[in-house]
Design a protein around this nucleic acid. Structure first.
Lengths: 207, 207
DNA sequence: CCCTTACTTGCTTGCAGCCAACAAGTTTGC
DNA sequence: GCAAACTTGTTGGCTGCAAGCAAGTAAGGG
C-alpha cells in the first residue's frame, strides 16, 4: 500500500514533473515580484522541493529563465498556429493579432512573463539575448512570409518592402504590448491591437 | 599655494561633482555589463570614490538608477525641444523622429541606458515604474498636443482619435527602438524611423 | 581682519544579512 | 547495488547600514 499523495513514478516522470513544477513556480513568482527579487530557494520551495534543486537541474538562475522563456515561447507559438490557417497577407496578420489578444486574455501572467523576459534581455551582456533574437527571427520570418504571399496574391500593395513592413509590424506589436505591461489599466490591449490592425490595413492593403 | 590636483571646493561643488561622476560611471558600467552585473562598489570606484558613497548618496541601487533615468530623460527631453519649433501635426512628429534619430547617433550609450531602464521597468514590482510612467505620460501629452493641433489646422485627418494615434505612434517608437537595442546591426535605427515616418504620414495626413 | 573653536557635510570603513553556486551526502527508482 | 533524483552544508560576493574620520563652514575673541 502506497500513500496516495506520493504515488510511485518512473525516474523520467519524476524529473518531468519537478521540471514542470519548478518552471510554473518560477513564472508565478517572477510575475509577482520580478526576476531580480525571485530567489532560487523560493522557487524550489514554491514548487514543493528543496532550495537547491533549481540550480542542480538548470545550472544557474540565467539557465532557469532561459528555459522558462523557451517553454512559454513554444506554447505561444503553438497557440498562434491555428488562428492563421491558410490565410495570407493582411488577413493573416489580423488573425495573428487576434491570437495574440486571446492568449493575453486567457493567461495574462504567462504573457507578462514572456514579454518581461524579452524586454529584460536588452540589458547589455544579457545571457538570454541570443535566445530572444532567435525567437524574434523565427517570428519575423513567418510574418514576412505572409506579407510576401500577400503581395503575390495581390492583396498587399506591390510597393511594400516585406522586410521593412515586418520590422514595423513587429515593432509596433512589441511597443503596444510594452505599454500594456507597463500600465495595463490605461488602455486595453484589445483596443491597442485593434488600432494596429486598422493601421496595418491602411498601410499594406491594396486600395 | 594649493595642489593643482585637489583644488579647494565648496561643499556644494564637491557633492555636485561626485554626483555627476557617479551618474556617469553608472551609465558607463550599465551599458557595458547591464544593471544587474554592475555593483555599487564598482560604480563608486570607477567614479574615483569609495565603494560606499553611492549608497550613502542615493540610498540604494534602485535609488541610483531612478536618478540616472531622470537625469537622461531630462537631457533627452531638452534635446527634442528645438527640433519641433512651431510645427504641428505630422510635421511635428517627423521633426520629433529626426531628433530621436540624432540623439541616438550622437550618444548611443546614453540612449541605450535610458531605454534599457525603461524596458527593465516592466518587471513587476519595479521601483522605477512610477517614474517611467510619468515620463511616458509627459511624452504622450506632447505628442497628442501636436496631433490635436494638426487636426484643428487641417493637416491631420478629422477622423483620427488623438489618444489612440498617440498610443500607436509611441508604441511603434518604443518597439523599433527596442529592436535596435536588441540587435543594432540588423537594421539601422534611421531606416526604422524613416519607415515609421512614412507610415505615420499615410495614416494621419489628410489626403 | 585673522585665527581658533564649534559645528556641518561629505566621504570611508567595518559588518550583518542574504543570495547564487558548488560539493558532498541521502533517498528513490530500476 | 547502482544510477538518477533530490537535499543539505558551505563559500564567496553583494547590498545596505552604522560608526567614524576628514574636509569645509560659521562664529567669537583678539
Amino acid at each position: 500500500m502506497s500513500a496516495p499523495d506520493t504515488p510511485r513514478r518512473t525516474q523520467a516522470e519524476r524529473s518531468a514533473l519537478s521540471d514542470k513544477r519548478m518552471l510554473e513556480a518560477a513564472i508565478k513568482l517572477m510575475v509577482e515580484r520580478g526576476v531580480e527579487k525571485t530567489t532560487l530557494a523560493a522557487i524550489g520551495q514554491e514548487a514543493g522541493y528543496s532550495r537547491g534543486l533549481v540550480t542542480h537541474r538548470f545550472g544557474s538562475k540565467a539557465g532557469l529563465f532561459r528555459q522558462v522563456m523557451r517553454w512559454i515561447s513554444q506554447r505561444w507559438s503553438e497557440h498562434l498556429q491555428p488562428y492563421v490557417g491558410e490565410r495570407d497577407g493582411v488577413e493573416a496578420l489580423a488573425a495573428f493579432l487576434a491570437a495574440h489578444r486571446d492568449f493575453a486574455q486567457q493567461s495574462p501572467e504567462t504573457m507578462r512573463a514572456l514579454f518581461a523576459l524579452w524586454f529584460e534581455a536588452v540589458s547589455p551582456a544579457s545571457e538570454m539575448l541570443p535566445g530572444v533574437l532567435e525567437d524574434h527571427r523565427r517570428l519575423g520570418s513567418r510574418i514576412r512570409g505572409w506579407i510576401e504571399s500577400g503581395i503575390r496574391s495581390g492583396s498587399v500593395r506591390r510597393d511594400v518592402d516585406p522586410g521593412m513592413a515586418t520590422a514595423q509590424f513587429l515593432g509596433t506589436l512589441f511597443g503596444l504590448t510594452y505599454q500594456w505591461l507597463a500600465d495595463p489599466r490605461r488602455r486595453s490591449l484589445e483596443q491597442l491591437l485593434k488600432g494596429l490592425e486598422t493601421n496595418t490595413r491602411r498601410v499594406l492593403a491594396t486600395p
